[in-house]
Write a protein that binds this DNA or RNA. Structure first.
Lengths: 370, 370
DNA sequence: ACCTAGCATGACATCGTTGTCAGGGAGACA
DNA sequence: TGTCTCCCTGACAACGATGTCATGCTAGGT
């Protein structure tokens, strides 16, 4: 059937017969090889540049030629090679974007990713997504992998001490937007929640509930947001005139299990806290598990930073300071595209607001004891 | 500062001075342009091919030359262009993989994605991730975008009626692995849960609990897994000798809200079900919300297909037939790499087992009434 | 001193595409 | 009929890298 079409449409110009090697016959020699513009051109009986014009919708091609070329392209199932085109194309854009998040298997990152993808899709841009796993080496490797593939822009969550290694790339004009955590050793656009402020909000909520024996459970201090949240917690206690000496501050919790163990240890002391601020979503879940095990989930207040899936269906409902991962992802992607569209204004820090969602656990009053 | 280094290291060979145009001076003219191998070669005072050898770790380069080239590459912050190399490279691999999932913002897809990424990382392969949104057009566009970027392999969740459009690509030898849903109109590797079997397992569990008035709530029948799960449910009822006439089978539920509404409607009938099988995770959540609103969550049994985040912390705990998204992702990625490594055996269907997790909601006994 | 083998190196063509440019043909206008 | 456009079209170089091949050099054997 395709042979039919070939015969009826195909006219060989002498120059083609003499100049083409046997690897470039009118139809790819074996079906395992991929058709190129030259194959399409030969089959349509036109020059490669004309095929290029048709494929890219350039003007000044006759309707008859367009039809011939489209037919040939369809017959061969031709797909243009974006990267080959890019090599020569003036703007040098790969229409590709690199996204680095904590882990793609994490509700916060998933929402960020989805928002980025939606904005990218409108621009015809594909997204590389990688997981950071809070490993500096993985960060470097991911960024390298992105740059070797010549992404048009980067959206990064980082864990290295300094991102100065990105300075040359920034000078070359590649947009880099930091999400979730602010950059160090370099200035560039950033889209973040106000972590200190959100933590203070959570803390104030507990203080206003009458609690005075609070505890902080959070992630490792190498993580910038963890430091900010701890700062917000402690500063709010200071503002309220609560002595921070003796306030349990447990750092370095990275998953449910460590948070659960830390919580249990906390209640093994003579004067356990009446309220807990857990500064990360996995930590919050670990705390919930521990409180249930201890049977303290109805007499210990809990406010978490970052929302927890189905937090409203638990008993008690989980009060959280929720971030807006969708908003963060969208804003970050929009920054990238604004930069690509020629926005050369100084770097901006976009702060996406957090909000307190009261669901019960944060409204438990202090126990009267001790 | 960089100028210093340049001066001390740089030796110009005559042939370079005469042959290079002004656009290719020893250092990129302005810092916005990206250094190429020619820049590195000029700065190191060697030929481009030698730079290529060093960058790719090919043998037969003297230690001194290697040092010179590395120094030059570091000075210029050179990053090889993977796609340009690919154009000429024998194997034609982009070390890139396309992954299409329901939505990257979905716990099941997140786990699949993460597992795929981990396997890919071991092979030095980057992953494009896109969301399908159960939209056939989006499927086609995503696959096109992947192919134009010459991914080495595809891992796809699909929603088109037929994936025959992939036949030419398959003939060219691109590995295509279908995940979660089986392909139609084409044969290729697939990695899926046994949906009918899992649904039957859930149904049997409810029947063994003594229930006879069951209801099915599921996703749109255009989705292959939705059809399979419904089939498993109905066939199990048949095997148990329960008449399927009059059994409420509600299709087309796509999100929490529609599932919630459908559940409420179900209880608006004279003889509501004593047990519900919800065939998708968002549907399960919608059902839970509805049952709570109606105050029936402690007297109506519920088994969901696919796990629900924090399902063990709810009251009652959510009994589910859990899939193994990690296992699915890993198996799919391993199939792709096996094919890339030359495995030409016939397509295989890998079935990743499901398992029943009893947490309470599925063990509620039937109400005695009516 | 001569030959040979093998290492080290760079010139050149090439991958698939697009930018540039030149040329041919048709129609408009004098 | 002759010119001047404008539209179509294809040859060719170029993008940044690698495969191929030829060449120069050094060390080793006679």
């Amino acid at each position: 059937m395709p042979v039919c079409i070939v015969k009826s449409n195909f006219q060989i110009g002498d120059h083609i017969v003499t100049s083409l090697s046997d690897t470039t016959s009118q139809v790819p020699a074996n079906p395992r090889s991929r058709p190129t513009m030259r194959h399409v051109a030969a089959l349509a009986g036109v020059g490669v540049k004309t095929v290029s014009r048709v494929i890219n919708g350039e003007p000044n091609v006759s309707a008859a030629t367009i039809a011939k070329v489209m037919a040939a392209a369809r017959t061969l199932d031709y797909q243009p090679d974006l990267h080959a085109g890019n090599l020569r194309r003036a703007d040098g854009r790969t229409r590709t974007l690199g996204l680095l998040v904590g882990s793609v298997d994490n509700p916060f990152a998933g929402a960020v990713h989805r928002a980025v993808e939606d904005v990218a899709l409108q621009h015809g841009v594909a997204v590389f997504a990688s997981s950071l796993d809070d490993d500096p080496d993985r960060e470097q490797e991911s960024v390298d992998a992105f740059l070797r593939r010549r992404v048009d822009g980067l959206i990064l969550t980082t864990v290295t001490e300094s991102q100065a290694y990105l300075a040359p790339e920034l000078r070359r004009g590649t947009p880099v937007v930091f999400v979730d955590r602010e950059p160090a050793g370099i200035t560039s656009d950033a889209v973040v929640s106000d972590n200190a402020d959100g933590a203070a909000l959570a803390t104030r909520h507990l203080l206003e509930g009458g609690h005075r024996r609070l505890a902080y459970l959070g992630d490792r201090p190498v993580i910038q947001t963890a430091r900010e949240r701890r700062r917000g917690f402690l500063e709010e206690l200071g503002r309220a005139g609560v002595a921070t000496r003796g306030v349990p501050v447990v750092d370095g919790l990275h998953d449910e299990e460590s948070a659960r163990a830390a919580t249990i240890a906390l209640f093994d002391s003579p004067n356990p806290p009446t309220a807990i601020f857990s500064a990360q979503n996995l930590v919050t879940i670990g705390v919930i598990r521990a409180l249930r095990e201890l049977g303290r989930h109805h007499d210990t207040a809990l406010v978490g930073f970052d929302d927890v899936p189905l937090g409203d269906l638990l008993d008690p409902g989980v009060t959280v300071v929720a971030q807006d991962p969708q908003g963060i992802g969208r804003a970050a992607a929009e920054r990238v595209f604004a930069r690509l569209d020629g926005d050369h204004s100084p770097p901006v820090r976009t702060i996406v607001p957090t909000r307190l969602i009261e669901r019960g656990s944060g409204e438990i009053p202090p126990r009267r004891e001790g």
